[in-house]
Design a binder for these strands. Structure first.
Length: 319
DNA sequence: CATCCACCGGAACTTAGGGTTC
DNA sequence: GAACCCTAAGTTCCGGTGGATG
């Protein structure tokens, strides 16, 4: 959630994104952009940073949507309208999506809007992209871990996005992660609570993922605080490491059926479909196979499970 | 070669749960 | 309160795929 007041080691990407959005300031549509790269490389951070900047300096309205949480057309529009300060008297249900789109169109008429869609690969349908692109006053910043995220969209959407600016976010080096930590420590912690050697240790195990590194640091700081220590000790850091590496898995929000599937796949390591279906039947009771496949789709989209191979050689395993 | 098999996933339909309108 | 509208999730239906089998 946190947006730093400055961003380090991302000058090139920052400039590229600012350039793409420059036309917006003079009331024209900007160039769409597509930020891609591994987790924890600052994509979301940069995008939000620029959005914030545009709002503070030029009063350009914008919205940040994480498609992982709001994947449907309705939810995305709902979130965007919320961000734009539109008070919706309507309730969650009972309002057609097209009506939300119409409200969006009316409220933003004559203005330029910037919308960030984070984790676009989680989008359930590309229709929302089509909607937003057609309106004409909306500049999109799309974000994904996968460079190929846009390929699967409909032709019309793809051609509208053909001119989008691809901005690559490579993994940070250990050195860079270290400097990011250093920067954050400077105004996040009391001076002297953590040593450089400790930050180096954290940077070393982060694998170039700044988010992981910052999480380790945060948890270590919490450990220190709860044990009434004035400083972060090495033991605090060591205790924080495993919590981050395995703990981040997002099993919350899974429903019972999906959790069972996850368990089965986890137990066996690798499951062929027939086996998976019959085992699921044993544990859950009656089921429709198509429904199970839908759960699996969901698990895959969440990045918890991977499918390998096609047809009868299909195998499911944990990602 | 024809047919079977085990599987996938799109499309259309149903249902549950929320709403509105008159 | 009857009639109706909306979404999301689950279900039904089914055609496609490509190796296995007779």
């Amino acid at each position: 959630e946190f947006i730093p007041s400055r961003v380090i080691h991302r000058d090139g990407q920052l400039k590229a994104l600012r350039d793409d959005l420059k036309p917006v300031i003079s009331g024209r549509r900007g160039r769409h952009s597509f930020l891609f790269g591994p987790p924890g490389t600052g994509k979301t951070c940069i995008a939000r940073y620029v959005l914030e900047e545009l709002y503070n300096q030029e009063s350009i309205p914008g919205s940040y949507v994480n498609c992982w949480f709001s994947g449907s057309r309705f939810n995305i529009l709902y979130k965007i309208l919320g961000d734009l300060g539109v008070r919706l008297s309507i309730h969650r249900k009972g309002t057609p999506t097209d009506e939300l789109l119409e409200i969006y169109r009316r409220k933003t008429a004559g203005r330029e809007v910037v919308v960030i869609l984070d984790e676009v690969d989680q989008l359930e349908s590309d229709k929302i992209l089509y909607d937003l692109l057609r309106i004409g006053n909306t500049t999109l910043i799309l974000i994904s871990n996968k460079e190929t995220a846009l390929y699967r969209f409909d032709d019309r959407v793809r051609s509208s996005l053909a001119s989008a600016d691809p901005i690559h976010f490579p993994k940070y080096s250990t050195r860079e992660v270290f400097e990011i930590l250093k920067d954050r420590v400077e105004w996040g912690l009391v001076p002297g609570t953590v040593k450089n050697s400790q930050l180096e240790r954290i940077a070393g195990v982060s694998g170039g993922d700044a988010r992981v590194a910052l999480n380790i640091l945060r948890i270590a700081a919490e450990e220190a605080e709860s044990s009434d220590s004035r400083k972060i000790e090495d033991s605090h850091i060591e205790r924080a490491l495993p919590k981050v590496s395995e703990g981040e898995k997002n099993l919350e929000g899974l429903k019972e059926e999906q959790r069972i599937l996850y368990e089965i796949i986890k137990e066996r390591g690798e499951v062929r479909p027939s086996e998976l279906y019959s085992e699921f039947g044993k544990r859950y009771g009656n089921f429709v196979d198509r429904t199970v496949r839908k759960y699996l789709e969901k698990l895959c989209r969440m990045g918890l499970v991977r499918k390998e191979g096609e047809g009868r050689w299909r195998v499911y395993r944990l990602a």
